[in-house]
Every structure is written in structure tokens, then in C-alpha cells.
Nucleic acid binder design. Structure first.
Length: 194
DNA sequence: GACCAGATTGTCT
DNA sequence: GACAATCTGGTCA
């Protein structure tokens, strides 16, 4: 069994952490069982200088964990019905987080399908709100430590992939920055381009 | 495949 | 009171 990635992994520039998180495995242990998946797509959200980030307009009660310690989970609720999961990652003194956009299911695929209520294997975790639902990540997971087990990232088994880069998805501002990273050719990536 | 509308509520101005 | 780091199901092709 692999250990959670150490806090030092998250204590680096946000875009670098986002790139290196690809191919790692996100694990969530709950009373219902274990669900896990390999990270195939994510996006970096920098601090106050990034117009697309929640942190762009300063600290608020909602985004305060982005300004806190790295290696902590940031879960936010949006569009009245969706949760999205981020890992706080940045050098000391800044704000920043990595949004997980897509996973490839590894363990607990049946449990994911049960939680989602619909969908084939490909559409189980190929979007930020989908993977949050499949892994049972919600309000209770906001602010939890990603280095102490329960909910954590661990080393993946495969290193043989190419990293693609593109603009971020779904933003009205800051959409021109190339801060989205994905594994090229992986069918679980949520979108092709643009 | 592309494009469009609706759902539904927390958060900030 | 407007809008949001989205998803789904519809239409049209």
C-alpha cells in the first residue's frame, strides 16, 4: 500500500504541482469502501494575480483555505448543485490550488456507479463535479489534510504518458492562460480542446 | 457531433 | 440581485 504524498510535494509552485499530479492516484476511504482513480486532467489556479482564480479578489470566508497550508483539500459548491475538489498547492505565503478535472477509475468502480446513479465507466469521473460525486467528496471534505490518510494522493504505477497543455475550461476571465494539464490520449480526459 | 436551455443555491456586490 | 472553476438532456444535423 502506498503512502500519502508528503506536504513538501504541495509546497511548490502551483502549476508545477498540477503537472506532477498527473498519473498520481487519488484515494478516498469511507465507511462504504475505498474509491480511487488516476489523475488524468487538472488545472492550476494561482493566487491574487490570476483573474480566473477564486483568490483573485482577495480572501473571503469561502476561499480562505486557498490561503492556508498546502496539502489541504479545498472543496467548493457551485451552480447550486455541484461540488468541485481542489488540492491547495503553493509556496509559503501565497494562495493557490489545483482543480482536479478528471480521473480514470481504479478501485471501487461499482461504488462510484452507485453514487452517480448513472453513466458508463467513461462518464463516471470525466469532469470536476462528476469525480467529486463518484468519490463522495462534499462539504465535509473542505479543509481536510491530504497527508494523513482518509483522503489523499499517492504514487501512481505508470509513468509512460505525455503531458498536454491547454487553456482552462469554463471561465469567464483568465481563460487565456495555459494552466490546464492532461494526459495525452487518455479517454477519460473531459474535453478535447479549447 | 454541435449547440442550447434548465436546474438550483451559496456567495459576494 | 446577479452570477458561478458544471452536468444533463433536449434538438438539429
Amino acid at each position: 500500500m502506498n503512502q500519502p504524498l508528503p506536504r513538501e510535494f504541495y509546497s511548490r509552485p502551483t502549476d508545477q504541482v498540477a503537472r506532477e499530479l498527473l498519473g498520481k492516484v487519488l484515494v478516498h476511504v469511507t465507511g462504504d469502501g475505498i474509491t480511487s482513480g488516476m489523475v488524468v486532467e487538472d488545472e492550476a489556479y494561482m493566487g491574487e494575480s490570476d483573474p480566473g482564480s477564486h483568490a483573485a479578489r482577495g480572501i473571503t470566508p469561502r476561499n480562505s483555505v486557498m490561503f492556508g497550508a498546502p496539502g489541504v483539500s479545498y472543496v467548493y459548491f457551485t451552480y447550486g448543485m455541484h461540488y468541485c475538489f481542489n488540492a491547495v498547492a503553493k509556496p509559503g505565503g501565497r494562495a493557490g490550488a489545483v482543480l482536479l478535472r478528471a480521473l480514470e477509475p481504479l478501485e471501487g468502480e461499482d461504488l462510484m456507479r452507485e453514487r452517480r446513479g448513472r453513466g458508463d465507466r467513461l462518464s463516471l469521473t470525466n469532469g470536476p463535479a462528476k469525480l467529486a460525486q463518484a468519490l463522495a467528496i462534499g462539504r465535509d471534505q473542505n479543509g481536510v489534510d491530504l497527508t494523513s490518510g482518509g483522503l489523499y494522493f499517492t504514487e501512481g504505477s505508470r509513468g509512460d504518458f505525455r503531458v498536454g497543455t491547454s487553456c482552462r475550461v469554463g471561465l469567464s476571465r483568465g481563460r487565456d492562460l495555459p494552466l490546464r494539464f492532461f494526459i495525452e490520449g487518455n479517454p477519460h480526459v473531459s474535453r478535447k480542446n479549447r
